[in-house]
Design a protein around this nucleic acid. Structure first.
Lengths: 346, 346
DNA sequence: TTTCCGCCGGAAAACGTTTACTGATGAAAA
DNA sequence: TTTTCATCAGTAAACGTTTTCCGGCGGAAA
């Protein structure tokens, strides 16, 4: 009485075999009306729900997909998850998610545990290279989302290089001459952003100052702020790894008496919803977080359905500049202070 | 070669029986050194990981817990999830989560699917009353978090009444006389907030204006803003269902030329991280989101471990006022405009 | 009336484990 | 040397399904 009813209970109550019940439930064969009626009645009465574990054992399908994200408290990722969740649901899949920030060391273990519980995996966390083979040995379809993927693995992301270049162009055009980047070293997506930015500046004969944050978080943005503001050659614009860093940065910048954008322009990346509500509202680059999740899930589901990975390949979303109020045009200083124009070419 | 190795493969390679391998893996029995060595070698070589589904079928334990949350894009919930995730991990559980906002209609179905996949469930979404019996029939331990629970089900939450009362006291003490509440009707947690606020105001001889938002979101806060600002008898303070609503509200209030807190005070509930970065910084009540998740998970795990629900019962976290800059003291208007003092007592 | 075929429903194997239960082996106790 | 007993390893049943195969039944065709 206490225990969940099994298919056997239903079969007994309906007076048919378990095979018949199974086939009825899965609509894999039709039966005569009285039989179907009896089965349905038994199911209703017992409140029977088939055991997904047992089903999965047989079919090899679980009906869930895993999502490994870096940090669930970052709105960029929650948007992604929301997008992914929506299309997963549309296709009858559930989401099983792992916040890798918390785990790190246990990631390996988690992956192992996950591998039999899901039909596929979306990896959105940055991850040490050595973990890659683990992923590739995952044995199930994998899609990388918002981060560079190893060769042969379908992936989707935004063009981080283009995004950064775009920002660079904007800032230079606005007359900024002393631009700093707040990012973190080890991750490759960061490399792309930085490369785009510095190559853009180079093209304009400028160079890029660099400050390191240890993570894409509000508190890191706050932490790093004082060092960039107290720098002897204070930048007139900072571009941040993402909106979180930017928002954190702006918060303490203001409390330190630096007014944005008058004294310094700030731009972020991601276009999280809260960027509209800071003061000043944050200029940023939209990375289409939700769409990223949606497309990643579509890619994954197509793979699960058995389509050839080769013709799926890599998908690149176009970034879009979102102009708000944290950047302002400068009357550019024609040349660095106390240095004759010629010297700049040295 | 393509297929995942099974325990049988390991047993064959090690030259022992599958029972021996199983017992070795689960450390449920010791074996002689050479045997253990052979098994370990076989496992390493084959990269064997036991199939959690098959294990679950036998043991009846899944090693995962489900979390049903209302809306993953609300930082309050992500904090909760983060807390829950942390202690789940500590106890060797994984998190399986469901964003009920997206589902609504399918919630029933999801619950059914979930029930065999998890060892317990944390319910944090508001949910139609009729779903309750479904939950109670879940057959696995359930904890309600941050929302009222049916009798007999362990739960944890903050004292919403106290929180609201606290806010009321603050506003009245600051000299506000025309206070409005932005909430939504059907949910019970909302009722508690509203009751606390209105009873507090009543105690001071004031009454509460009420505006309806359709959800605890930024956009709802934005949407409702104009109607409260354009109201003939414009409130001098609004308390919002949560920080999301408050932040949205403040955003459009500013763009409509209402300056906060000079023209109007605003206070939220939850103390999400972004509240520090709006301008003005948001006065709010801390609901200990992360702790809420942690404690909910502890409660759940204790239940799963077989402790008696009765002596677990209900847990209530104390709210804490977080004073920031979106509220200001008013020089109270001694009596409503154009109305003689006596009339107020009517 | 016989033959054939399509439809309905059941028997049983399989999925990959865990876990009684059972034997066998050797060492310690008698 | 025999008995006892703990220790080590294996056999087989069970978990709740899906799915293949197969037999039986009835009606249509001959």
């Amino acid at each position: 009485m206490k225990n969940k009813p099994t298919i056997r209970d239903v079969a007994a109550k309906a007076g048919v075999s378990i095979a018949t019940v199974s086939k009825f439930i899965n609509a894999t064969q039709r039966f005569t009306a009285p039989v179907e009626r009896k089965i349905q009645a038994a199911i209703d009465e017992l409140q029977y729900h088939s055991n997904p574990l047992a089903r999965s054992m047989i079919t090899g399908k679980t009906g869930s997909v895993g999502v490994a994200i870096l940090d669930i408290s970052n709105p960029h990722f929650t948007s992604m998850v929301k997008g992914a969740n929506r299309v997963a649901l549309e296709h009858g899949y559930n989401l099983l998610f792992v916040d890798t920030e918390e785990n790190q060391a246990r990631e390996d273990e988690l992956l192992g545990a996950l591998s039999r519980r899901v039909d596929g995996l979306i990896v959105s966390s940055r991850m040490p290279e050595e973990q890659m083979d683990r992923i590739l040995a995952f044995g199930k379809p994998v899609v990388f989302s918002g981060r560079p993927a190893p060769a042969g693995v379908p992936s989707i992301g935004i063009d981080a290089y283009a995004a950064a270049y775009m920002i660079g162009e904007l800032l230079v055009k606005q007359g900024h001459r002393n631009i700093a980047y707040l990012g973190f070293a080890p991750a490759r997506p960061d490399m792309e952003r930085m490369r785009g930015l510095s190559e853009c500046l180079e093209a304009h004969g400028l160079s890029l100052a660099r400050f390191e944050v240890r993570g894409p978080t509000l508190v890191e943005g706050e932490r790093v702020c004082s060092s960039v503001i107290l720098r002897k050659d204070k930048p007139d614009a900072v571009v941040c790894y993402n909106d979180m860093v930017a928002i954190g940065f702006m918060g303490v910048a203001r409390s330190l008496g630096v007014s944005i954008p008058e004294d310094m322009s700030v731009v972020g990346v991601d276009n999280i919803a809260f960027g509209r509500f800071t003061s000043p509202a944050l200029t940023t680059v939209d990375t289409q977080s939700e769409r990223l999740g949606e497309e990643a899930m579509r890619l994954l589901i197509r793979q699960i359905a058995g389509e050839n990975p080769p013709d799926i390949g890599h998908m690149m979303l176009e970034p879009r500049l979102v102009m708000r109020d944290s950047t302002a045009v400068r009357t550019p200083v024609p040349f660095p202070q106390a240095t004759p124009p010629k010297a700049r070419k040295r």
